[in-house]
Design a protein around this nucleic acid. Structure first.
Lengths: 246, 246
DNA sequence: CGTGAGCTTGACTTGTTTCAACCAACGTGG
DNA sequence: CCACGTTGGTTGAAACAAGTCAAGCTCACG
């Protein structure tokens, strides 16, 4: 049950900094709409929320009242088995729509857990759908997001089904590094990296111990450097080779 | 490149037999539309195709000119790695839309291969989209199909990431049996089952040899019986236990 | 100062793969 | 009609990747 710390009609200021951001698309859609009708600008209703690190935001089958977009911090989508095995399906970064299905269906199909402190915007679902009906551009954006989501899900299945431990871990790290770079969150090959080994283990279907061993090999081979919360990739090409990224 | 054996505006007759069939929904949408406008009934343009067993219908990145729906036979969606490792993402049964993304985007994101002889209907994309814009019911149907697709993809990731060989195989068989039952293709616990062991191996991320060993154990334990192309489940409850289906 | 969460390492076990041989069913061409 | 290659299934032995168990370490936090 998320607590709402404020209640506003202004989209989150941070979001404007993100290039690949549905918040931006939503505000743009509203502008187009306003220009077309000549009506006074009136933003889609937004609630800003904020959740501490390592908290469950929603669990499987929960009803999510709004369409949530991450504005700050990292979260993960998780499916848990009866015997407590866990699979992380994706990591959510600033600017990510939690799930495209939430635009149409308020029922969550997996749990969402914070990794760091998280701030997210909950857009009014009805307003988003209305904007969608009026703006073909916004519809295209959402359609693109949906396609990206299914492509990621399929890639995950291939990785888990066909690849070994080193390949899986290398690809996960490279994938995150690329997404962070797109958001301008990489400086001199170094980025903020709040994941613990158990996150990487849950995302790759490996045990924590084995994950640690592979990461140790990567570190000794000079492929990654992890200092506390900072990740550096001194040899991206080598890591790409380890991850069979071609 | 599929060969079109006939060219017709009549939807495939077989499809009417399937309860969960997008063909049926498309015809229904057309009826609603015709009734609403009073216009003469005019079905969505359809091309019927047919492809022999073990053939590639489309490969990754191919442009698919229509929206294809399987009418008869079994097919599989496949992603292949550079070194020829393969992951089957899903099995397509009669009545299945090949992929919901193909309604909006003609570019295929994975290969589609036939297992048996296959007959499929290719619906005119523009007409489908027009029908979608006019019929909220059809939009809901498609939305539901999309949600089912992503739920299946997520389930696959969890199975591949967290479950052992026996669990994966048991779940795959039970999942197929359930889908066949929904289509009325099960008689006295027996169903047509054209999969070879290598299909099951590619779908579960295991080797053919190991798949054969697990299936042998299931057979000796009286959980499955496979005679040529026929599958029987003498002890579904036992198989559900083996598959941790709760 | 103690406690708990996270990381590293080593020894051992288990599950899965690899390699290899063999058999049965089937279709095809001589 | 038979000889033959191909495809699919079964089985066993050995190799290997990953999991399990366990200990010891650091560090942050009360």
């Amino acid at each position: 049950m998320p607590k709402s710390d404020e209640n506003t009609r202004l989209p989150c200021a941070d979001c404007s900094a993100q290039e690949f951001n549905i918040c931006r698309a939503l505000r743009h859609a509203h502008n187009v709409d306003a220009a077309g009708t000549g009506a006074a600008p009136d933003a889609i209703a937004v609630q800003s929320h904020h959740v501490a690190a390592r908290r469950l935001i929603w669990r499987e089958r929960d009803t999510v009242p709004t369409v949530p977009v991450i504005c700050h911090g990292w979260a993960a989508t998780v499916l848990t088995l009866s015997d407590s095995r866990r699979q992380i399906l994706s990591f959510l970064l600033p600017g990510d729509l939690v799930s495209a299905t939430l635009v149409f269906d308020p029922v969550c199909t997996y749990s969402v857990e914070t990794i760091t402190d998280v701030r997210y915007n909950g857009f009014d679902r009805a307003a988003v759908r209305a904007a969608l009906a009026k703006s073909p551009a916004l519809l295209d954006t959402l359609s693109q997001i949906r396609n990206d989501e299914t492509a990621s899900a399929d890639r995950l299945s291939v990785d888990l089904g066909q690849r070994g431990a080193a390949e899986r871990i290398a690809r996960l790290i490279l994938n995150l590094a690329e997404r962070l770079a797109q958001r301008g969150l990489v400086r001199d090959g170094t980025m903020d990296f709040p994941l613990r080994q158990h996150h990487i283990a849950d995302a790759t279907g490996l045990t924590v111990v084995h994950t640690g061993k592979v990461l140790g090999e990567f570190r000794r081979a000079g492929l990654v450097k992890i200092n506390g919360r900072a990740l550096t990739l001194p040899d991206p090409e080598g890591l790409r080779r380890a991850g069979d990224m071609y």
